[in-house]
Deep mutational scan, measured.
Amino acid sequence: GKMTGIVKWFNADKGFGFITPDDGSKDVFVHFSAIQNDGYKSLDEGQKVSFTIESGAKGPAAGNVTSL
């Protein structure tokens, strides 16, 4: 299901970062391709987001990332 969290950091040049889930679980990798907006796909440190957990090739990653 949907989770919420805070963006820990995001490197716009490399197109990835990490989200710290509100439930205290392990930080989740986020790739820019998972960001659900029409414009420039980037996130800001400290931004609140909702997301799902998808299993990627390198382990769990955030999917369906939407800013709240």
Rank of each mutant, 00 (worst) to 15 (best):
G1A: 10
G1E: 15
G1H: 06
K2C: 06
K2L: 15
K2R: 07
M3H: 11
M3K: 11
M3E: 06
M3Q: 11
M3C: 05
M3P: 05
M3G: 05
T4E: 07
G5H: 00
G5A: 02
G5V: 00
G5C: 01
G5T: 00
I6A: 07
I6T: 14
I6D: 03
I6S: 09
I6M: 11
V7M: 03
V7I: 08
V7Q: 00
V7H: 00
V7R: 00
V7L: 03
K8Y: 04
K8T: 07
K8R: 11
K8F: 04
K8D: 02
W9E: 02
W9H: 04
F10R: 01
F10E: 00
F10M: 02
F10Q: 01
F10C: 02
F10L: 02
F10S: 01
F10A: 02
F10N: 00
N11I: 06
N11Q: 07
N11R: 13
N11L: 08
A12I: 14
A12M: 13
A12D: 08
A12G: 11
A12N: 12
D13P: 09
D13R: 15
D13L: 14
D13G: 13
D13C: 12
D13K: 15
D13W: 15
K14D: 04
K14F: 12
G15F: 03
G15Q: 04
G15H: 04
G15P: 01
G15I: 02
F16N: 02
F16L: 05
F16D: 01
F16T: 03
F16R: 02
F16S: 03
F16V: 06
F16Q: 03
G17R: 00
G17A: 01
G17W: 01
G17I: 01
G17H: 00
G17Y: 01
G17M: 01
F18Y: 09
F18N: 02
F18M: 07
F18Q: 03
F18V: 05
F18W: 10
I19S: 00
I19M: 02
I19Y: 00
I19K: 00
I19H: 00
I19T: 01
I19R: 00
I19N: 00
I19V: 04
T20E: 08
T20A: 13
T20I: 15
T20K: 12
P21A: 05
P21Y: 07
P21H: 03
D22K: 06
D22T: 09
D22Q: 07
D23G: 09
D23P: 03
D23N: 12
D23Y: 08
D23S: 08
G24K: 10
G24C: 06
G24E: 05
G24Y: 06
G24R: 08
S25P: 05
S25Q: 10
S25Y: 07
K26C: 06
K26Y: 10
K26M: 12
K26W: 09
K26N: 12
K26I: 12
K26R: 13
D27P: 08
D27W: 04
D27I: 06
D27Y: 04
D27M: 07
D27R: 05
V28H: 02
V28C: 04
V28D: 00
F29L: 04
F29M: 03
F29R: 03
F29C: 02
F29K: 02
V30K: 00
V30L: 08
V30E: 00
V30T: 03
V30C: 05
H31R: 04
H31Q: 04
F32E: 07
F32N: 05
F32G: 05
F32A: 10
F32M: 11
S33L: 10
S33T: 12
A34I: 04
A34C: 04
A34Y: 04
I35Q: 03
I35G: 02
I35V: 11
I35F: 08
I35N: 03
I35R: 02
Q36A: 14
Q36E: 12
Q36I: 14
N37E: 12
N37Q: 15
N37A: 14
N37W: 11
N37C: 07
D38R: 07
G39N: 11
G39E: 10
G39H: 07
G39P: 10
G39T: 10
G39M: 10
Y40S: 15
Y40I: 12
Y40N: 12
Y40M: 12
Y40D: 12
Y40P: 13
Y40V: 11
Y40H: 13
K41A: 09
K41E: 06
K41C: 07
K41W: 08
K41V: 07
K41Y: 06
K41G: 08
S42I: 14
S42G: 13
S42P: 06
S42Y: 15
S42V: 14
S42R: 13
S42Q: 12
L43Y: 03
L43I: 06
L43A: 02
D44T: 15
D44P: 12
E45A: 14
E45I: 14
E45T: 15
E45M: 15
G46P: 01
G46E: 04
G46T: 03
G46C: 05
G46A: 05
G46I: 02
Q47R: 07
Q47E: 13
Q47I: 09
Q47K: 06
K48C: 07
K48F: 09
K48H: 15
K48M: 12
V49P: 00
V49W: 01
V49L: 03
V49Q: 01
S50W: 10
S50D: 05
S50K: 08
F51K: 00
F51A: 01
F51N: 00
F51R: 00
T52I: 11
T52P: 00
T52E: 10
T52V: 12
T52M: 08
T52D: 11
T52G: 04
I53E: 03
I53A: 05
I53S: 04
I53W: 07
I53L: 14
E54H: 07
E54V: 10
E54G: 07
E54D: 12
E54Y: 11
S55I: 13
S55H: 12
S55K: 15
S55Y: 12
S55D: 11
S55R: 11
S55A: 15
G56W: 09
G56E: 11
G56K: 09
A57H: 15
A57F: 12
A57K: 14
A57R: 14
K58N: 14
K58R: 14
K58I: 10
K58P: 09
K58H: 14
K58S: 14
K58A: 13
G59Y: 08
G59F: 08
G59K: 07
G59Q: 06
G59N: 07
G59W: 07
P60L: 14
P60Q: 12
P60D: 10
A61Q: 15
A61W: 15
A61M: 15
A61I: 14
A61R: 13
A61T: 13
A62K: 01
A62E: 01
A62D: 01
A62N: 01
A62R: 01
G63M: 14
N64F: 10
N64M: 12
N64S: 11
N64Q: 12
N64W: 09
N64E: 12
V65R: 01
V65L: 05
V65S: 01
V65C: 03
V65D: 01
T66Y: 08
T66A: 10
T66H: 10
T66N: 10
T66R: 08
T66E: 14
S67R: 14
S67Y: 13
S67W: 11
S67C: 07
L68Q: 09
L68F: 07
L68A: 09
